[in-house]
Simulated scan of single mutants.
Amino acid sequence: MVDPEEYVAVVLALVEQIPPGQVMSYGAVADALATTTGRNNPRRVGTIMARYGGGVPWHRVVAADGRLPPGHEQRARALLAAEGTPMRGDKVDMTAAWYPP
């Protein structure tokens, strides 16, 4: 199991790999790292994104239903639109924008 600081680093490294126009959910990030880190907590991923995500494409991590990061919806929507991310109303179209496909 990695320590909490290492977990922050691997979460941010994974988020950096999400290509423009695609997204992952908090839970998918946690699931993708579970085997190698021994941790699987979507809420922790959300906390990491809120505290440390400013240097990575934070807007590409959304809720499982496509909701945008709380408190940052307008900015996230603008960034996602600029990347051509498929949307359904105010949410990301998760079937079209999911990473990895």
Results as ranks from 00 to 15, higher is better:
residue 2 V to I: 04
residue 4 P to C: 10
residue 5 E to K: 13
residue 5 E to N: 14
residue 5 E to R: 10
residue 7 Y to G: 05
residue 7 Y to I: 04
residue 7 Y to Q: 14
residue 8 V to E: 15
residue 8 V to Q: 12
residue 10 V to D: 00
residue 11 V to Y: 14
residue 11 V to G: 00
residue 11 V to T: 09
residue 13 A to G: 11
residue 14 L to G: 03
residue 15 V to I: 11
residue 16 E to L: 12
residue 16 E to S: 04
residue 16 E to P: 04
residue 16 E to Q: 14
residue 19 P to M: 09
residue 19 P to L: 10
residue 20 P to C: 03
residue 21 G to H: 12
residue 21 G to M: 10
residue 23 V to C: 05
residue 24 M to D: 12
residue 24 M to W: 14
residue 24 M to P: 11
residue 25 S to C: 09
residue 25 S to R: 06
residue 25 S to Y: 02
residue 27 G to I: 10
residue 28 A to T: 11
residue 29 V to T: 01
residue 30 A to L: 06
residue 31 D to L: 02
residue 31 D to E: 15
residue 32 A to E: 08
residue 32 A to P: 10
residue 32 A to Q: 02
residue 33 L to P: 07
residue 33 L to E: 04
residue 34 A to I: 05
residue 35 T to L: 10
residue 36 T to K: 15
residue 36 T to L: 03
residue 37 T to K: 13
residue 37 T to G: 08
residue 37 T to W: 06
residue 38 G to I: 01
residue 39 R to H: 13
residue 39 R to V: 01
residue 41 N to R: 11
residue 41 N to Y: 09
residue 42 P to M: 10
residue 42 P to H: 14
residue 42 P to K: 09
residue 43 R to H: 09
residue 43 R to D: 15
residue 43 R to V: 11
residue 43 R to S: 08
residue 44 R to N: 08
residue 44 R to S: 04
residue 46 G to T: 08
residue 48 I to A: 15
residue 48 I to H: 11
residue 49 M to I: 02
residue 50 A to N: 13
residue 50 A to K: 06
residue 51 R to E: 15
residue 52 Y to T: 14
residue 52 Y to Q: 15
residue 53 G to W: 06
residue 54 G to M: 12
residue 55 G to K: 05
residue 56 V to S: 06
residue 56 V to M: 08
residue 57 P to I: 13
residue 58 W to G: 08
residue 58 W to A: 01
residue 59 H to A: 04
residue 60 R to C: 12
residue 60 R to M: 03
residue 62 V to W: 06
residue 64 A to T: 00
residue 65 D to C: 11
residue 65 D to L: 07
residue 66 G to E: 02
residue 67 R to C: 02
residue 67 R to L: 03
residue 68 L to S: 00
residue 68 L to R: 11
residue 68 L to A: 02
residue 69 P to T: 05
residue 69 P to K: 01
residue 72 H to K: 03
residue 72 H to T: 00
residue 73 E to V: 07
residue 74 Q to D: 11
residue 74 Q to Y: 13
residue 74 Q to W: 15
residue 75 R to A: 12
residue 75 R to K: 14
residue 76 A to E: 10
residue 77 R to A: 14
residue 78 A to K: 14
residue 79 L to Y: 09
residue 81 A to P: 13
residue 81 A to C: 14
residue 85 T to Q: 09
residue 87 M to W: 00
residue 87 M to R: 01
residue 88 R to H: 08
residue 88 R to L: 13
residue 92 V to D: 09
residue 93 D to Q: 08
residue 95 T to L: 07
residue 96 A to H: 09
residue 97 A to S: 02
residue 97 A to Q: 00
residue 97 A to G: 04
residue 98 W to D: 10
residue 98 W to P: 00
residue 98 W to S: 03
residue 99 Y to R: 08
residue 101 P to W: 13
residue 101 P to H: 06
residue 101 P to C: 01
residue 101 P to M: 07
